[in-house]
């Protein structure tokens, strides 16, 4: 199996998960249409970058800008690692954000309820 194909096989699920995740967030009205479009564009750009790696490498090799004519296994793992970290960081940020908001709401409601109870 070529390393280019391996790169696509490893990364396509992450990109698809990112795209579906953004769509679900939008459809469940957790994010606005602009945020959904922005996130979708970012994931498509990443996917475009992955697809374009081999043609870019070939172009640079033919023009004597680089010596390597194909990716090493390390390159494949490195790119996959970066995209995986991006995917996880985005997920973690969304979860932390949501948790923070819930804690704030809980604190607010609890403060009001306890003060009302104290007044009675």
């Amino acid at each position: 199996m070529s390393r280019y194909l391996l790169l696509i096989i490893l990364n396509a699920p992450l990109v698809i998960a990112g795209l579906i995740g953004a769509l679900v967030e939008y459809k469940t009205r957790r994010i606005s249409i602009f945020k959904w479009l922005g996130t979708t564009v970012i994931w498509l750009v990443i996917f475009g970058g992955i697809i374009g790696v081999q043609p870019a490498l070939t172009f640079l090799h033919e023009h004597h800008k680089i010596r390597a004519h194909e990716m090493s296994l390390f390159d494949v793992l490195e790119i996959t690692g970066i995209i995986y970290i991006l995917f996880m960081a985005n997920r973690s940020r969304i979860k932390t954000d949501r948790l923070e908001q819930r804690v704030q709401d809980l604190h607010q409601e609890l403060s009001i309820r306890l003060s009302e109870k104290q007044d009675q």
């Binding site: 704030q104 604190h107 607010q108 609890l110 003060s115 104290q118």
Partner: peptide, 13 residues
Amino acid sequence: NVIRHILNTGSGG
């Protein structure tokens, strides 16, 4: 009428 915050959150909170 006083509402007591359980934790210090800041002016916005």
